[in-house]
């Protein structure tokens, strides 16, 4: 596969954006109970998926997850965020072609659900206890709410003047 300079540049810009959003969000005080995040960095992943394409979005996500764990995480947090991101990416890749542009928020919600499921499974394997699953209902509710918000923001962004950077083949 040939990667053009434009592709590399765009992936770099999107990854940097996503990393900044991720790290700023990590500094925000977490909600009561912990473990619930807005997932704002997913806005960038979604936009990348719409504007650049699936493969490029995957690259953006991989760079962000790796660098985020280097800058503000540990090996354990890498396992968690990588498993969450991987599942979210898979789910969103499968859905984004099937739903039209106005259903982007649905893709986002499923992505958020996938992310939280991935993290729950990671917690199950790391802690080895079924207690990880007791958090699942809370995580699913938060996934629906934050996923919808993130999706709406992404929809606005994709249809904003930003779309002139689009490289996705139609």
């Amino acid at each position: 596969m040939r990667v053009s300079v434009k592709q590399i540049t765009m992936i770099g810009i999107f990854a940097a954006l996503s990393l900044i959003i991720f790290m700023v969000e990590a500094e925000l005080p977490v909600f009561e109970g912990g473990g619930i995040k807005l997932g704002l960095a997913n806005i960038v992943t979604l936009c990348a998926m719409k504007l650049l394409g699936r493969k490029e979005a995957g690259a953006v996500l991989a760079v962000r997850v790796l660098l985020a764990s280097v800058f503000c995480g540990s090996a354990i947090s890498l396992i968690f965020s990588a498993s969450g991101a991987f599942l979210a990416y898979t789910v969103m890749c499968l859905l984004i072609g099937r739903l039209d542009d106005r259903q982007l928020w649905v893709v986002s919600v499923f992505g958020a659900i996938g992310h939280n499921l991935g993290q729950t499974f990671a917690a199950y394997f790391v802690c080895g206890s079924a207690i990880a699953f007791s958090m699942l209902p809370y995580l699913l509710i938060s996934a629906v709410i934050t996923g919808a918000l993130v999706g709406i923001v992404s929809m606005k962004l994709v249809s904003s003047p930003l779309r002139r950077f689009s490289m996705a083949k139609k």
């Binding site: 106005r102 259903q103 928020w105 007791s134 209902p137 809370y138 509710i141 629906v144």
Partner: peptide, 28 residues
Amino acid sequence: KVLKKNIFWIAVFSLLVIVCLAVILLQR
């Protein structure tokens, strides 16, 4: 059509939230 689809998905997700709330209450 878009509106209809959105309503469909909103219904699906509300159902999911309601199921989760029920599970949480049961746990309590």
